[in-house]
Design a protein around this nucleic acid. Structure first.
Lengths: 343, 343
DNA sequence: CCGGCTTCTGTGAGCGTTCACAGTAGAGAA
DNA sequence: TTCTCTACTGTGAACGCTCACAGAAGCCGG
């Protein structure tokens, strides 16, 4: 099997070729390429025809060299990669960002900062100006990479409210607190009064906010929070199982559980089932995320849907605006209660 | 909140600054940067010190402009994105490729060719030389994007044997056929003789190979294939459920089912449960993929594990070799039987 | 002492683009 | 007419790097 791998590749046409073909100068072609201001319709047309004929595609390296922009952006995931890569919502986010950027003809560079080495390399890469901005997924508090990027003045948009970064960094987040409030109100409206909670990790904004919403609503309802009804989890299925077991032990009279993630809620359902509690008759269960786990659970989970498609679109919009010189912005998007069989 | 977003960004040092700092010429710095041949130890040391001192990072755009290489590679997903993004193995693959490339200091560009527009744009982008090579995930047969890239001479490595692309494209795949053979042999060794199969889609290499392995082993064992025992699925949970129902209808006496994916196997387990068949006592069930679904199923699934981490590493290795001028290569990696409670 | 080899170094050119500037033509105002 | 303004176009310079080449220095064999 002898096949030259570089065989088919010719040197692509340059702006010069297009200019010659169209009978104009490089400058005019460049102007057509970048918005077409101050170009006569005739020249415009000739250039476009020449571009089509030659199959010209702009050389982004040459452009970047002079403009200083790279016209590409980084999608940066720091810290616990496993948690995210297993999270279906992360996939929706990654996909949404890629497509939103593609609409602007901007490529997305995937950057995973797992090891220390990777973190250093990626920080260098970004601060050297090889991307124009960064979409950041880092639920963790006090992320050193993020802090360094912020200090270097790199346009940055986080997914979820960053805990450690001061207020000067843009972020887009679902309204976790309000979603939690909706769910707890829903459980109250069903007549439940002994509502337990399995929380998410308290070093993540989502974990904090969901718990806060739970507390708020119970406070407002005049019921108050029984601290024995609050057990902590880490978003994993196993921690949901353990949480439910503790809950049943500490407070056997619970009639509802608000679980901070669907995956944990699956574990809760399992534990309740083994304990002989019927869902939702004895205990109603509410999740969070509307992940595939929610529909495949038995019974199907009532949950809170986060608008991940909108989140990714907003992240890209805010980042591009910021690269364009606008101020950092915070965007909070509403969630939606999805009622299924578990409540 | 008035904060200049570009405030902190200074013009980064150039090769010229490093040269001046080190008291040598640009050429010498460049030589140090690219392997350091024909450079005196003294100069070598002076340049490295200057690089550290100035914090110099090479400008990849300027380099690419002259070398013609982009030093970046594309990770291209064509066709049905939903199927893949929900597939945990896809995530492992994406992550593995990103990290393997990072070790070579090569960024990965994520490219999703969903719509016709995206396909055209991406094809242009790639053939214009903006990436040096492409890691391709496209189980579909006769992929037009892949065909175009191949024709344009773009270095290409597919994940899984591409069906429509002739033999001249590199690929890395798990040994689907051998994995299927292992599973069926395992079921035979348990004394099962009426072994049904729920296949994967027959326009994907995996689907074809797994069915072939099933047929081979039953043939070799002198049992032969009862065509009523073979029903087709599309890797979805629902199709597994439907497949099991048909199987029970056509051949109530089955004592085992080989299911071409874990997700489908979950559906099969559900259907068997509803039909009152005990697993594995009445019917043994074998899956494929070793996805999270396998462990969370009840009973936990015996399945075939594909070496996704090795696959991603090999894809990158083969692609870089091909970019370096080597011939296309095919790599087949062994699978592993993971025995759990369902057999 | 010369010529040739090896090892090392500096220099100019050029990659393909954008940008600033100079310049042209035509229209309208004085 | 002449001057100014607008709309448009072409030209060199620059972006930061690599590459080819020329040349210097040291060493060896003749």
């Amino acid at each position: 099997m002898t096949m030259s791998t570089t065989g088919g590749r010719r040197r692509p046409p340059t702006i010069h070729d297009v200019a010659r073909e169209a009978g104009v100068s490089r400058g005019t072609v460049s102007r057509v390429l970048n918005g077409g201001h101050y170009v006569s319709p005739a020249a415009q047309e000739a250039v476009n025809a020449a571009i089509r004929k030659t199959g010209y595609v702009v050389n982004r390296h040459a452009r970047s060299l002079i403009t200083g922009r790279s016209d590409s952006i980084g999608f940066l995931l720091t810290e616990p990669q496993e948690r995210f890569f297993e999270d279906p919502n992360f996939n929706v986010l990654l996909r949404g960002c890629t497509q939103a950027l593609a609409a602007h003809d901007i490529p997305l560079l995937l950057m995973l900062a797992g090891t220390k080495d990777e973190r250093r390399r990626i920080t260098r890469y970004i601060t050297a100006g090889h991307v124009d901005g960064v979409l950041l997924v880092s639920s963790h508090s006090g992320d050193p990479v993020a802090e360094e990027l912020r200090a270097a003045g790199v346009p940055l948009v986080a997914c979820g409210k960053p805990i450690g970064l001061g207020s000067k960094v843009s972020y887009v987040a679902a309204d976790d607190r309000d979603g939690a409030r909706d769910m707890v109100r829903h459980l109250l409206s069903l007549g439940r009064r002994r509502i337990g909670m399995v929380t998410g990790p308290q070093d993540t904004p989502g974990g904090v906010e969901r718990l806060a919403g739970y507390r708020e609503v119970l406070g407002e309802a005049g019921i108050g929070v029984d601290e024995r009804l609050v057990v902590s989890g880490d978003y994993s299925r196993a921690s949901g199982e353990a949480g439910a077991e503790r809950l049943l032990e500490l407070a056997p009279d619970i009639d509802a559980v608000f679980v901070a993630s669907d995956l944990m809620a699956q574990g809760v359902l399992g534990a309740l089932h083994r304990a002989g509690r019927r869902v939702p008759d004895d205990v109603a269960v509410g999740g969070f995320d509307d992940s595939p786990a929610a529909t495949s659970a038995t019974p199907a989970l009532t949950t809170i849907r986060q608008p991940w498609d909108r989140i990714s679109n907003e992240m890209v919009r805010v980042l591009l605006a910021q690269i364009g010189g606008e101020d950092p912005a915070a965007v909070i998007l509403p969630t939606e209660l999805v009622r299924r069989a578990s409540t």
